[in-house]
């Protein structure tokens, strides 16, 4: 390890090189999206912790319903299709934003809102069916983990809906200003992230339950 503190390439510069007079501008949009991406990775860690627990709780049924008795893979596949369509709709909204087409963006965001709400409705329907069976989270460690993972994902979707609704208003209110645009970009990350988490939920919770 050489002990050099100075970088000789820069020493040729005159004193004038000590200060940067041009405010070259840190890019606020990509600073925001990077920060939100970091936050999403942090959020994903909560799911990682829950999936780690899920790997253990899967068998802790305490004599109550087992995973095989409560999942319906085809119904969950329909949920998958609805959610992915909502995510895709939001992608189309961003494609419209790129072309500065406000009407198209609003329409596609409204579609995402609709599909997201549909997905949530399907989840609530599924949960009420489980509750009718007595497969409530208070029944066993296994059911606690099952409900918590799915409900946490659902809560994320609910937040995405609230945020999308807010952005509908902001696009109408102030158009594509810088603040609105980076929020739209962050919301895109948020929607797409829901698809990634759902792949894990679908395969490791629902399909796992359909395996013998």
């Amino acid at each position: 390890m050489t002990m050099k503190t100075t970088d000789d390439t820069a020493t040729g510069q005159a004193t004038g090189g000590l200060w940067a007079f041009e405010d070259r501008g840190h890019d606020p949009v990509s600073t925001r999206t990077l920060g939100f991406w970091l936050y999403l990775l942090s959020d994903a860690m909560i799911f990682a912790a829950l999936f780690a627990a899920w790997g253990v709780y899967l068998h802790n049924t305490a004599g109550g319903p087992t995973i095989h008795g409560i999942v319906h893979p085809l119904y969950a596949f329909a949920e998958t299709a609805v959610l992915f369509t909502g995510v895709f709709a939001y992608g189309l909204a961003m494609s419209a934003v790129k072309r500065a087409w406000r009407g198209g963006a609003l329409l596609a965001m409204a579609a995402a809102l609709g599909f997201g709400a549909w997905f949530l409705g399907m989840e609530i329907h599924e949960f009420s069916g489980l509750a009718a069976l007595g497969a409530v989270p208070e029944r066993s460690g296994f059911l606690s983990a099952y409900w918590t993972i799915i409900a946490l994902h659902g809560a994320h979707i609910a937040l995405a809906l609230l945020w999308t609704g807010l952005m509908l208003v902001q696009v109408l209110w102030s158009g594509f200003t810088e603040k609105v645009v980076y929020r739209l970009l962050n919301l895109r990350l948020f929607w797409h992230y829901q698809a990634v988490i759902w792949v894990c939920v679908y395969v490791f919770v629902y399909l796992r339950g359909a395996m013998r």
Binding site: Y57, A62, P137
Partner: peptide
Amino acid sequence: VGTHFFTAGLGGDLMM
């Protein structure tokens, strides 16, 4: 809520 993640019974696992 009354879940059983870390309780001593009903499938809870306190070491988790």
